[in-house]
Amino acid sequence: MSKYENYDAISENYDKTRTAVGIEIVLGYISSLNKDREKLQILDAGCGTGNYALELKKHYPNIWCADFSMGMLSKCQQKFAQREQQVNLLRCDITKLPFRDGSLDVVICNQSLHHLDEPGNNFKHLAEFLRQAARSLQPDGLLLINTITHQQLHDGVWWGDLIKPAVERMKLRFTTDEQLAALLAQAGLTMTNRVVALDTIIQQHGYFDPGSLFDKTFRDGDSHFSLLTPDELAGMLQQLEKMREHGELEAYIHERDRLRRDIGQFTYYVIGKK
């Protein structure tokens, strides 16, 4: 239920910049549950257009896709229909998961939790989502949260420094590790591992393209940009243009990307019930 991005509107272009990055981490942890894959019930909470769900479907028959946006769900429905595959789709608020207690084996949540809360409300909705996930999961169930650390917000993309005001605003929407650990404990959950795929790039095509940020469709694939004011966006584009004119942009990208190679762009938190 993002208050700063209209996901119904951007669902058309969403897949131009998003793929199921880190899916190998998800698949690895699900297989390590060592359960009958025919019986596993897997929920993708905040499924978007279903990129992760489609990958999961290759291995597991019972996939649930939940999202607040009907635009995203319709796109997801089309993609499954094109492949003549069955999926359980739900429009819901993931802080009010409509699942019976202990009915799910796995809940995954990819790059969605920062849309739940407005800054300053102490992650009240995130806390509720975690409680609902804990309730819906079986005792040995698995919750996988794919999110971005504060350091990754700034240094996980080469343009982080150019959009500093947006990054600072974004940090208010993402928990620190300590905040997340405390919220998990309150929900009866515990973090068992953190996994970072250093060589995986969320934006994939176009990430290293010096012209990418001039393209609105590319910027729409990264919710940071929607937190820039029009003046800040114009200033950033002017700065980029200047670097491009002086032939400095490619060197800037290369230099900044060294930080990304050290810390990665996103983090998977592997979580179980206490």
């Binding site: 009907m70 769900l73 319709s74 429905q77 789709l89 739900l90 429009r91 819901c92 608020d93 009010k96 409509p98």
Partner: peptide, 13 residues
Amino acid sequence: IVNGIPVLMPNNA
């Protein structure tokens, strides 16, 4: 249920 998709949200949301 809209186009086969249940909309399981409280009415005020």
